[in-house]
Amino acid sequence: MTSQNWLDLAQDADTGIETLRAHFVGHAYDPHWHDSYLVGVTEQGVQQFNCRRAKHQSTPGKVFLLEPGDIHDGEAPTADGFTYRMLYLDPQWLKRELGAVFDNAPDNSELSFANTLASDARLAHAASLAFETLHGGELKIIRQTALAVLLERLTSHLHWRTRYGEDPKLPLVAQKAREYLHAHAHQDIGLDQLAAATGVDRFRLTRAFKAAYGMAPHAYLVQLRLATARRLLARGEQPATVAMALGFADQSHLGRWFVRAYGMTPALYRKRCSNLPDRQAPRL
């Protein structure tokens, strides 16, 4: 991270919601995804990102809404960079909290945002207020009230969609490959192995996968492992242990990918989300 870039990350102990405020100049982060629903507000500058096969520009006051699995990147197209604040909402928490509103969920469905970018001043205000109360550690009743207001505003931007399954718009080979990667994410998977599992040669597999999901299979596998790494680090696992468990060559290898995707080191993420000190491995 350059001297121009900074970030401030915290996690609410009661809800598990992560809150992030950050500033980036130039390139911010490589394409990646999260297991959470992301609700963010741009404070300053132009926040440019690619998501769902479209390029978006979020300017001050706009709200960006990303679902779990939405691949996105980030950059500042202007010299002054951009500043934003973000809430990472756990899917189970969101579904549970909205149960009273969406009490008749269709079978095999999940909550979905209608649009990636929204011009909704009331939603922007509600998201900012929720961020401030959680990030600042306000009294529990204040945090809960702010979240209730945020959820009320979010309902007009949410709908039910069919849970991931066979999508007629995507090549079946790409969907089979994705399922295989999810089922064998901790293994040292080769392209030949993945191609054999999908019944095509590796060249057609790579073309189909990249066309469907916006990245090659190897890049998707790395992002899948990084999403798992975030969960383990937030629980207090050591970066070296996480790297070994997820098939990275070593802690440095995990660290390089983690910084490219999230703009911070695994150790910093663990410290901010678990509130545990980082222990150095003993020297032999």
Rank of each mutant, 00 (worst) to 15 (best):
T2M: 04
T2N: 12
S3I: 01
W6P: 00
Q11D: 02
T15E: 10
T19W: 01
L20R: 07
L20E: 07
A28Q: 03
Y29M: 10
D30M: 03
H32Q: 05
W33S: 12
V41H: 09
V46Y: 03
C51I: 02
R52P: 03
H56M: 04
V63K: 04
L65Q: 07
L66N: 03
D70V: 03
I71A: 14
A76D: 02
P77F: 11
T78V: 13
T83Q: 11
L87E: 08
L87S: 08
L98Q: 11
V101E: 12
P106V: 05
N108E: 13
E110V: 07
F113V: 03
L134K: 07
G136E: 05
G137T: 02
I142A: 15
L147R: 12
A148C: 06
A148M: 06
L150Q: 05
E152V: 02
R163D: 07
Y164I: 09
D167E: 12
K169F: 06
R178G: 09
E179W: 00
E179K: 05
L181T: 05
H184V: 01
H184W: 03
A185N: 04
D188Q: 13
T198M: 01
F203W: 02
T206H: 09
T206I: 10
R207W: 01
A208T: 02
F209E: 10
A212Q: 06
A216I: 11
H218T: 14
Y220W: 09
L224R: 01
T228R: 14
R231Y: 00
L246W: 08
L246R: 10
S252V: 05
H253P: 07
R256K: 14
F258S: 09
V259N: 07
Y262N: 10
Y262Q: 05
M264E: 13
T265G: 09
Y269T: 04
R270E: 09
P277T: 10
R279F: 15
R279A: 15
P282T: 12
P282G: 11
L284D: 15
L284S: 14
